[in-house]
Amino acid sequence: MNELPMSHHKHNDPLPETVLRVKALESLLVEKGLVDPAALDALIDTYETKVGPRNGARVVARAWADPAYRERLLSDASAAIAELGFSGRQGEDMVVLENTPQVHNMVVCTLCSCYPWPVLGLPPVWYKSAPYRARAVAEPRAVLEEFGCSLPEDVEVRVWDSTAEVRYLVLPMRPRGTDALNQAQLAELVTRDSMIGTALPRSP
């Protein structure tokens, strides 16, 4: 694969009229009282500063440290995640996929960009991009290699295609040598990509 124009799809500049169109729509919607400017600013602040993969890392660290919580997380993920205060839009129906020495899980949304917002925040551009959506289901091991994640041949790779209804969070395996760490220290090892399944957690 080389430098075809399409390979630069990761983040294109907008069409010239897009910026203008967004301004026009916002201005008309505010003028007609259909949206409240203060509510718009609050939405942006929430997703820019309050919701993100640190939430998911807390869920994973708790599951590593607390076997009863892990059981609840695997049997009713939405409820177990809500115990930590994370719920709402684009995370109403959560399923947690547990990695084991035999099975590695990886999540994609081939049709658009469905992603568990309450625990991971908004998706990165690569997750929404054509290359990831096209290739994750066709050649997951090649994709994992591109992320620097090399798995033994005997590990089964399962790829889960998200839908508008069901959102997945990968529960990675707890790294070795972490017995003495507390939950806050464990959470530091949990990266966003390890919860999408394109990487493994950090080692201590």
Partner: peptide
């Protein structure tokens, strides 16, 4: 939009420290 399995899109190119 139904991109699963399509060929020809090239590398994935994650962006380090990507802003929201």
């Amino acid at each position: 939009h139904d991109l699963g399995g399509m060929h020809g899109f090239g590398a994935i190119s994650p962006e380090p420290d990507e802003p929201v």
